[in-house]
Amino acid sequence: MSRSLARLAAGAALVLFAVLFILPLLWMVSTSLQPEGQVLSGTGNALTHLIPRRLAPVNYVKALQTLHFVPYLLNTLYVCVLVVAGTLASCTVVAYGFSRLRWPGRDTLFSIMLATIMLPPAVLLLPQFVVFRSLGWVGTYKPLIVPAFLGNAFFIFLLRQFFLGIPEELTDAARIEGASEPQILWHVIAPLAKPALVTVALLCFVWSWTDFMGPLVYLSDDRMYTLTVGLASFLDRHRADWSGLMAGTTLVTTPLAVLFLLGQRFFVRGIQMTGLKG
């Protein structure tokens, strides 16, 4: 009897938390759909306003224009796609070198690389800025994109763990048949590692999309902005227009939410891998 009561309580808590997590998002969408004056009117509160009485899709038209959504979306996609491409190319090759090849010094270098995962981005931001500035790259997309082609310690680690799980016999057989290492990587390892590669691609895409510090520091021309920086400057220009701001936030957030829903099982695995490093 007490057992079923406990189950009921746990079920109720499960639902309660789900409501608390999702309510702000619902409210964001609801605010974005209401006329500007409506949300700040004196009567009622956030909960009574949760279901819009009058719909005003015009907020979205306004937000699309003032946020420069389409150009910023294209900028963001440009950066994200190149970052994902660079990350996949470099990390696959490096992870192969750290897992399927045997060479003196490999494990020492690998532990150095593991240690760099813990290096806080805020520590590197400034020194890297100085370096990119001396290269004349500030004000271009290069500081956001080029580093991706030089690998990312966490993704290398993630791929290496996956590569280690692929049976040695497969690569040995390919070697006996005379395949070179790049051929083995391309024809044997990469096809088998597809789930891990998808995980890396998705996580990398999301991190690049949500990055704020990078674009903020390196992009000076507002026509080059990505969505996150664009959204922040939209906020600075429209401080009290909550409907418009929420419409903008919804626009920037939705693509990510959809991507998360579609690729959930890859995301979950990737996020759980972040707990395994160290």
């Binding site: 789900a18 409210w27 704020f212 920086v229 959204l231 909550w242 936030t249 998360f260 959930q264």
Partner: peptide, 22 residues
């Protein structure tokens, strides 16, 4: 439920910040 619990986590920090201002 996993989806519902994790959705806030995938928001860009700028979006989350803006939303929480409100």
């Amino acid at each position: 439920f996993r989806t519902l619990y994790c959705l806030p986590y995938v928001l860009p920090s700028v979006s989350a910040g803006l939303l929480w201002l409100w």
